[in-house]
Design a protein around this nucleic acid. Structure first.
Length: 341
DNA sequence: AAGAGGAGCAACCGCTTCAAA
DNA sequence: CTTTGAAGCGGTTGCTCCTCT
């Protein structure tokens, strides 16, 4: 009746991932591509549950993810989408391709929810402005869980509502940033990027495209490896600093290898070889073709970095306002998928 | 300077759904 | 058509760090 857990309790390691484990996992994915997670623990020797491997990859190791420093645009988008879609974080995350559902969920729970609750007058109320302006009826009533194909279809049915919500969001964003004024956009984005050293924008993949290729969610084909290396570099760098420097967060021996959330912008080219714990590791050992498995629309890190949030937003805006061009809602998903940034 | 409480983040758990046999 | 395995999602928990007293 009760399905046994995906992995046995005994012999399965839990807790924070170590850099070594991350490297093993990254190497495996580079070699075999994401997916077939069930086989990962056995084939890599990782004493981890397959689910844990998938989660680790999806949330931290996969290329193109941006961590921390949510921009104002992102924040508003999340608020509106949450009002519209409910706690369907994966669906929401599909509109913020650089963000993981877990990240968005955490951000919502730690920042936005409190912000909206506490400052009913201060901003968009959870049930307040966001809900009122966009959708009086949060879609949270829907079944909570939705796997890939399922939510994709559901998303497609929701796409009109989402579109309205996004339009509302973007309309409100116009107060912050006129749609086609790069300077203003840069200023807004700069709050996270230039000033705080957030990870360079890795470009926005297509909205709603995260489910098109199985496990892969963001997959620059050629740049992906670079980004992965950056991630590893950041991870190892941060870990080394934290561990060796003895000052950082999670300085204890069990400290997880958090891919540097805030220290990333400038040091990305250092990725070729890094050392931690006295051991030099070549992060570039794996073949660059590793991410050919991934099929999402190509986006290069450079282009994304140049484009930044402005481009992302413009693409979304274009998508939204394509409504006027008569794009059928049934094809919206495809239209959205066609975006390359 | 030390301690307590709060906040944020990473990871785990259980459930649901999909796909293959 | 039914069963079984695998993947994905959302909720929740635990750990660590930061800030305030």
């Amino acid at each position: 009746m009760v399905r046994p857990p995906c992995c046995d309790k005994d012999g399965v390691k839990k807790g924070p991932w170590t850099p070594e484990e991350d490297l093993v996992l990254v190497s495996y994915v580079q070699e075999h591509g994401p997916g077939n997670w069930r086989a990962v623990p056995t084939r890599t020797g990782l004493m981890r549950c397959s689910k844990s491997c998938r989660l680790r990859w999806t949330n931290y190791l996969r290329p193109g993810i941006k961590r921390g420093n949510f921009t104002d645009q992102e924040e508003k988008l999340i608020v509106h989408l949450q009002a519209l879609l409910g706690n369907r974080w994966a669906a929401i995350a599909s509109y913020l391709p650089e963000r993981t559902d877990n990240d968005i969920k955490n951000y919502w729970n730690t920042h936005l929810k409190r912000k909206l609750q506490g400052g009913g007058a201060g901003g968009d109320g959870d049930g307040g402005a966001a809900g009122d302006a966009v959708s009086p009826k949060p879609a949270a009533q829907r079944p909570a869980s939705s796997s890939k194909g399922q939510w994709e279809r559901r998303l497609q049915t929701d796409i009109d509502m989402a579109r309205r919500a996004l339009r509302e969001a973007l309309t409100s964003l116009d107060d912050v940033k006129p749609p086609h004024q790069p300077d203003a956009a840069n200023a807004a984005a700069g709050g996270g990027g230039a000033t705080t050293g957030a990870a360079a924008s890795a470009g926005a993949d297509s909205p709603a495209a995260s489910s098109t290729s199985g496990a892969s969610q963001c997959s620059p084909s050629s740049a992906g490896y670079v980004l992965t290396t950056e991630n590893i570099s950041r991870m190892l760098d941060g870990w080394a600093r934290k561990k060796g420097g003895g000052g950082g967060r999670r300085a204890a021996g069990s400290g997880p290898a958090t891919p540097g959330a805030t220290e990333s912008a400038s040091g990305s080219s250092e990725a070729s070889e890094v050392s931690y714990g006295g051991t030099a590791l070549s992060a570039a050992a794996a073949p660059a073709s590793a991410f050919e498995y991934e099929t999402k629309p190509t986006v290069t890190a450079a282009a994304a970095a140049d484009a930044g949030d402005e481009t992302q937003l413009s693409a979304i805006e274009s998508w939204l306002f394509a409504d006027a061009d008569g794009i059928e809602s049934g094809s919206l998903l495809d239209a959205a998928m066609d975006y390359t940034f």
